[in-house]
Design a protein around this nucleic acid. Structure first.
Length: 477
RNA sequence: GGCGGCUUGGCCAAGUGGUAAGGCGACGGCCUGCAAAGCCGUUAUUCUCCAGUUCAAAUCUGGAAGCCGCCUCCA
């Protein structure tokens, strides 16, 4: 079964057929770099990173473009408030964005264009629209896109201009031919960054950069355009208007939009003061837990961030690593040449509109099945069983490359977790080992009240003891 | 006001018209000196409500209620 993708343009799942066989052009709207990135940015980036990985897994040659908006009113505002130069601001936040996305194990796109590096292309694009009568310059002022020149305006978001006029909340600008015309180029006020253009010193409006840069890197029409749901209107609607008005051909075949991250069931907003930044989340949880959380729900649904949900995900991740460790101890080895049932389930789920939640469930099912086999075999499987376990092991390893999680070797994973606990709790591991030894001696002498006393003592420090065939090990709760 | 979405067990969450995945939690059992971990079993005769189509509906249609998003910068 091939890949199916939910296309916002038609409001339904469609079989994915790229414009050019074997190749995919994908453009995703990146951040406006004027502030620290929040967990919502992380969702969008991780979702499209996973889509990028999956398309690559399906053997498509993917050209993945994600832009930085580095000229914008908000950047200028911040510059005016802080006295810091615009370029210094954008460079700072681009660096920060890269660092955080690297930490989240996000692959770099094929190209990461910045709007300010493409001003010439933007100006050419605007000129083309003016030449075709799709845009107009108000003397001494802005260049606007003329909504009335593009009959299909509203097709992505399911709006029509007449309905919108009825509930008009938008300020009427006397210079505009139609109140819904939007800015392509705006003149610079004194002290603002500007570029020379046929319409005087100024800078581009927001929407035009994506039309210009996607044209530059992907051509007149391409396969996938993505971003957060909030971008459907007006941003993506306007991109369609600009690009299709310019070229007269379909701009994007498949539109993909991810849902929001809520915080404790509330939308993130400045007024609620609940913006949760990626760096805060990274301080509390590992990158793997964050990725796993972001992939634990279907990308189009809202997802709720809370301490409870993160703790749950974290326990699930422990369980998968514990299984991997158990497999390795039983003698499982990497053999990339083979795929098992788990992979089939995973593939079906991912091909069904990138259903990572369902795909994740198939991993847990495999963990359950594999653990049972190991139980039955008392952790020393015969060849037939080892063969089955090896398939689980290899499938999970393959899945880890798509999800960008379970990539660490299990031993290291638990060691890191332990080290972090030791550091956080300010505990001396030697002391614990000593107590464990004392307890082992007590148990040998059947002094169970003493051994239980030691265990309780450690448990009070959130340390759990596990007695196994090879002696006692410990971990943090 | 316009447009779109959501409502599945204690919580989180998949679900393609064919008879309810998965995770967390809880309870019982196996294992253990006792635990922990792991495994097994039990936790939704039912999918917000009402009506309809159908041999068959959580899935389709119509209606009601509740919640949410976009329409203004926003992933």
């Amino acid at each position: 079964m091939g890949l199916k993708v939910y296309n916002t343009l038609h409001g339904k799942k469609e079989v994915f057929v790229p414009l050019v066989e074997g190749k995919v052009g994908m453009y995703v709207c990146g951040p406006t770099v004027y502030d620290t990135s929040h967990i919502g940015h992380a969702r969008s980036v991780v979702v499209f990173d996973t889509i990028f990985r999956w398309l690559t897994e399906l053997k498509y040659d993917v050209r993945y473009v994600r832009n930085f908006t580095d000229v914008d009113d908000k950047i200028i505002k911040k510059s005016n408030e802080t006295g810091v130069d615009c370029t210094a601001i954008t460079e700072k936040y681009i660096d920060e964005f890269h660092n955080e996305m690297d930490a989240l194990n996000v692959l770099r796109p094929s190209v990461e264009p910045k709007a300010t590096d493409h001003i010439r292309h933007i100006i050419e694009f605007i000129q083309m629209l003016i030449d075709k009568g799709k845009a107009y310059h108000v003397e001494g002022g802005d260049v606007y896109f003329s909504i009335d020149s593009f009959k299909e305006y509203g097709k992505l978001s399911g709006r029509n201009i007449e309905d919108m006029k009825a509930g008009a909340r938008i300020a009427v600008d006397e210079n505009k031919k139609n109140p819904f015309d939007f800015v392509l180029w705006k003149p610079a006020k004194p002290g603002e960054p500007f570029w020379e253009s046929p319409w005087g010193k100024g800078r581009p409006g927001w929407h035009i950069e994506c039309s210009a840069m996607s044209y530059e890197y992907l051509g007149q029409g391409f396969d996938i355009h993505g971003g957060g749901k909030d971008l459907i209107f007006p941003h993506h609607e306007n991109e369609i208007a600009q690009s299709e008005a310019a070229f007269g051909t379909q701009f994007v075949k498949y539109w993909i939009h991810n849902g929001f991250v809520d915080i404790n069931n509330e939308k993130m907003s400045k007024s609620l003061g609940n913006f949760t930044m990626i760096k805060e989340v990274l301080a509390s949880y590992s990158a793997e837990v964050i990725r796993m959380f972001l992939l634990s729900k279907h990308y189009r649904s809202p997802i709720d961030y809370s301490e409870d949900s993160m703790r749950e995900i974290s326990l699930g991740l422990d369980r998968i690593y514990a299984f991997l460790e158990r497999l390795e101890k039983a003698g499982c080895k990497v053999d990339a040449s083979r795929k098992g049932d788990l992979w089939n389930d995973f593939e079906m789920a991912m091909n069904d509109d990138f259903n990572s939640a369902k795909a994740m469930a198939s991993v847990f099912e495999a963990v359950k099945k594999g653990n049972k086999i190991l139980d039955d075999a008392k952790d020393t499987p015969d060849e037939d069983r080892l063969d089955v376990l090896n398939l689980f092991y290899n499938d999970i390893k393959d899945i880890s490359n798509i999800f960008g999680i379970f990539l660490v070797d299990p031993h290291t994973y638990f060691k890191l977790k332990k080290d972090k606990g030791v550091a956080d709790m300010a505990i001396d591991p030697a002391e614990i080992e000593d107590l464990i030894q004392q307890r082992t001696d007590a148990r040998k002498n059947k002094d169970f009240s003493r051994s239980d006393e030691i265990r309780d003592l450690l448990q009070a420090k959130k340390i759990i003891l596990e007695d196994g065939p090879d002696g006692t090990t410990w971990r943090f709760e």
